[in-house]
Nucleic acid binder design. Structure first.
Length: 277
DNA sequence: AAAACAGTCAACCGCATACTC
DNA sequence: AGAGTATGCGGTTGACTGTTT
């Protein structure tokens, strides 16, 4: 299939976005929504490709994005979900309102992966997580009997791997308690392949079939008992639009959002003139 | 003080899939 | 049904910043 040319087109800007570009994009979407990303930059007067605009909007400018450091609870959720789903960042992001897949991916690679390593959880060559005793060193022989196969993303229940969850090698959520639980704690809860797991909602939200669908949007989390996700909805109530539908519909919440961004630019002393759309 | 190194994160790339005609 | 197009996604890159030497 022939792919349409995109950013390589001459004249299209790449690289970091300027505040002016940001405001133009925000302003345009506020007025017109983002029905067609490809047409958007031209109509908005941006020298960017649609893909770049979409990425900038979804990963940074979208007003329902929660900026700032991840809370411990959020980190725990990411770790748990990653154990279950592997690198399905968008699916993980769908469980963390206000966070983007890109952000979660970055956090995973920069903080959480290291955190897990510090807690002596290793991955062997097959992608299995291996927990090591707190006072011991990394396994020289990954097949040593003292190590336990805890989890492997490949073994998770996914549409591609239709085995029922009860048959999976999946780490129990309680292994990721607050403060990342000590390694001693982890090793005490040795997990073998056939050990019965506690999937009660006390530790983890109820998950139904649609959980595994990529199609879920962040505002469609009704199949998950969100009460188990601290810092979910309440923390992103700034009067910002909570869904793209609201934005598209031009609901008044968006105006609050614009006020927010205008203030940001004004404070920065960098308020550009907006073009007429 | 400055060079080297490490960490972080926004942005890009290319593939897969969904959608439209 | 199939070609063309749009969008979503995960992996990767590279610029920037902070820290160490």
């Amino acid at each position: 299939m022939v792919r349409a040319p995109c950013c390589e087109k001459m004249g299209l800007k790449k690289g970091p976005w300027s505040p002016e570009e940001d405001l133009i994009l925000i302003s345009y979407i506020q007025q017109h929504g983002h029905g067609n990303w490809r047409a958007l930059p031209k109509q908005a007067g941006l020298l960017r490709c649609g893909k770049s605009c979409r990425l900038r909007w979804t990963n940074y400018l979208r007003p329902d994005i929660k900026r700032g450091n991840f809370s411990k609870e959020e980190e725990e959720i990411i770790i748990k979900l990653h154990e279950m789903m592997g690198n399905r960042w968008s699916a993980i992001a769908a469980r963390l309102p206000g966070r983007t897949d890109n952000e979660i991916k970055n956090v995973w690679h920069t903080h959480l992966k290291k955190k897990l390593q510090n807690n002596k959880i290793f991955e062997d060559s097959n992608g299995h997580s291996i927990i090591q005793e707190c006072d011991s060193k990394a396994p020289e022989n990954p097949n040593s009997p003292s190590e336990q196969i805890v989890d492997s993303p490949q073994h998770c229940s996914t549409p591609e791997n239709p085995n029922s969850p009860s048959e999976q090698i999946v780490d129990s959520p309680q292994h990721c308690s607050s403060e990342m639980s000590s390694v001693t704690d982890l090793s005490e809860k040795t997990v073998s392949k056939h050990e019965e797991m506690d999937y009660s909602s006390e530790y983890f939200p109820h998950i139904d079939e649609t959980f595994w669908s990529d199609e879920l949007s962040t505002d469609d989390n009704t199949n998950v008992q969100s009460s188990n996700f601290p810092a979910a909805k309440d923390e992103v109530q700034f009067g910002f639009p909570s869904s793209s539908e609201e934005i598209d519909a031009g609901i008044s919440k968006v105006d609050d959002s614009m006020d927010f961004w205008y203030n940001v630019f004004i404070r920065a002393g960098d308020m550009p003139d907006l073009p007429e759309f």
